Simulated scan of single mutants.
Amino acid sequence: MTATAAGRQVPVGALLRQWRRQRGLSQLALAVEAEISTRHLSFVETGRSTPSREMVLRLAEQLDVPLRERNRLLLAAGYAPVYSHAPLDSPELRRVLDAVRRVLRAHEPYPAVAVDRRWNLVAGNAALPLLTTGVAAHLLRPPANVLRLTLHPEGLAPRIVNLTEWRAHLLGRLRRHLGLTADAELSALHEELQGYPGGPAEPEAELPRPGDVVVPLRLHHPGGELSFLSTVSTFGTPLDVTVEELSIESFFPADDTTAAHLRKPTP
């Protein structure tokens, strides 16, 4: 979504209508959730009524619009943004960055990374080289994109035992995130990743085998195959765009062999 098109400002009503349709909601459904009349919502969407700042924020909340886009909605309506957007290394976010680094360190000896909204690497812990060993240098140059370096043929992909399965999992996550954010750069990244070898351009959903509960990441390793489960953490009550867009992915050993290997003292 964008507040401009062909060099002109898109009215806030048109942007709200785009987000409503993106979420698959009717005017009636959104009006009920926002506790306003369908007539009022229709007037807002067509530009016959100018919404207050509070109304823009109420509708954005019901539509689960990202904070970045809520600021754009406010600008389109003629109001100042209300959500800060501070750099991660700014004094305002020092405590946030410290918390991220503490979480990453606490997860050692298992790998963990912090990424931004486009899966660009923000930070990693001391166990990250377990995943990046052998990855081409150009894929690690900032801003390194973790999806690209995972699925690129010069990245982690040659070491992934279940590449087709893991690729389908990552592309599915990216599609879901794209559906939430409508981000043009993520759409371009999705198209790029689809072109990498390792499976069909648009992987079909795979039925889980008996006993399967999550998709593991299985890696070739000189010491034997390593298998990981992953979890994703975000900040629960963000009021800053940068904070909302941060996430931490933590990898846990999926079997005793992997756990024992990772707990071995480094020579």
Rank of each mutant, 00 (worst) to 15 (best):
E249T: 14
L186T: 01
S230D: 12
E204T: 01
G172H: 14
P158Y: 03
V241P: 05
Y196N: 12
R176D: 02
I160G: 01
A157K: 03
D256P: 00
L156N: 08
L163Y: 02
H221W: 12
T258S: 09
P203D: 04
E165N: 05
P208Y: 12
N162T: 13
R159E: 04
R175D: 14
A254M: 12
D256M: 00
A205K: 07
R209K: 10
A254F: 09
H220F: 11
A182R: 13
P238F: 05
H190D: 14
A188Q: 14
L189E: 10
E192K: 13
R159A: 11
Y196L: 14
L186F: 09
V243Y: 06
P210K: 04
E165Q: 12
E249F: 07
P210Q: 01
R173A: 14
T150E: 01
P197K: 03
L147N: 00
V146R: 02
R159D: 01
S247D: 06
E249W: 01
L186D: 02
L131I: 03
S187P: 06
H138D: 14
V243E: 04
L226Y: 05
A254V: 09
E192G: 06
L171R: 06
D212V: 13
G198E: 02
A184C: 00
G155N: 10
E202S: 13
P200W: 02
E244W: 06
L149E: 00
A205R: 12
D240F: 08
G198I: 02
A168E: 08
A188V: 10
A182W: 07
G198H: 05
P153E: 07
P200E: 05
A144L: 04
E154L: 12
L180S: 10
L149A: 00
T133W: 00
H138S: 13
H190L: 10
L180I: 00
V215D: 04
L239P: 00
F252W: 15
E206N: 11
R209Q: 11
A157M: 01
A182L: 15
P142F: 00
A136S: 15
L217H: 05
P200Q: 08
L226C: 06
G134P: 12
L131C: 08
P197F: 02
I160Y: 00
L219M: 13
G179N: 10
V243Q: 05
V161K: 08
